[in-house]
């Protein structure tokens, strides 16, 4: 296809797999090291790859880099940018961040070994879109209960604390039930779903606990229905704050084996 670059001092970073025929890549598209991108032939598919300097992207350097928050954010956003741009023109199956091989030949070999599963995954996400839905307990207003008659100040204080804690537990319990209902309804509309771990408060900037962090793979013709289901439930469920994200490239479903695919194999 294109001239094979000198990979003696470079590793191959894989961005995504796209369905063949793949067409040309946007010329201005560059990767995590500012490198130009190219297509590698894999039977029935093409992989989008770039050559990144080995000095900066061997195992040791990479593992040092990812400890640096600024480096990690920039690289993650670069990888995502490439996948997004590819998604404008191709059915795209994103690779896990930092998928690196010694050279193109090795990358092609590894992808070819998984050829059947890759094709199945492309098939699984075709005509479908990933959306994210997160839910938190709704922020609680300050609820005041006056001291009961005849209580000592100390006892009143304690019972106030207890009442507040009970109220909080009840609210959290109610919110969790609401979150399960939200998920059940959305899972009913979606073709597939995956649960991500709840995001910690330090990352979301919210005091309330996250109760739902799911990715849903939705048939494109059901997207409006999915979105209105989210809107409707946001309006209905007083105990929850809902947030819809996406559309996302199908990150959460790219390596996903169908749960109904019979016996699982241990990876």
């Amino acid at each position: 296809m294109t001239a094979v670059p000198d990979t003696g001092s470079a590793n191959t970073w894989l961005y995504a797999v796209v369905q063949a025929p793949s067409g040309a890549l946007p010329e201005s598209l560059t990767g995590v090291a500012g490198e130009p991108l190219r297509l590698l032939d894999v039977p029935g598919l093409a992989a989008v790859a770039g050559s990144v300097p080995r000095a900066d992207f061997d195992e040791e350097a990479l593992n040092a880099h990812i400890q640096d928050p600024a480096w990690l954010e920039r690289a993650v956003r670069d990888h995502h940018r490439v996948v997004c741009v590819l998604g404008r023109t191709h059915r795209v199956l994103p690779m896990r961040f930092a998928t690196l091989c010694q050279d193109d030949a090795r990358a092609v070999e590894l992808l070819t070994e998984r050829h059947d599963r890759l094709l199945a995954a492309v098939d699984h996400v075709s005509g479908r879109t990933e959306l994210g839905v997160k839910a938190w307990s709704a922020p609680r207003g300050a609820e005041a209960s006056g001291p009961a008659d005849g209580q000592s100040p100390g006892a009143a204080y304690l019972s106030r604390l207890r009442a507040r804690r009970d109220e909080r537990d009840r609210a959290t319990q109610a919110a969790m039930e609401q979150a399960s209902r939200v998920h059940a309804r959305l899972a009913g509309v979606a073709a597939d779903w995956v649960q991500h771990p709840p995001q910690p408060g330090e990352a979301t900037g919210r005091d309330e606990p996250m109760l739902l962090n799911c990715a849903y793979l939705v048939d494109d013709d059901r997207l409006p229905g999915f979105r209105s289901a989210v809107d409707a439930m946001a309006a209905e469920t007083a105990e929850l704050t809902l947030e819809l994200t996406g559309p996302w490239p199908p990150y959460s479903f790219a390596g996903h084996e169908r749960q109904d695919a019979g016996e699982g194999e241990s990876a």
Partner: peptide, 22 residues
């Protein structure tokens, strides 16, 4: 970034290359 990290660090096609995040 938090939503991106959910997806890029735990999602995507996984192939075991020679170079891995250790």
């Amino acid at each position: 970034l938090v939503d991106l990290l959910d997806r890029l660090l735990a999602g995507g096609v996984v192939i075991a290359g020679e170079i891995t995040l250790g």
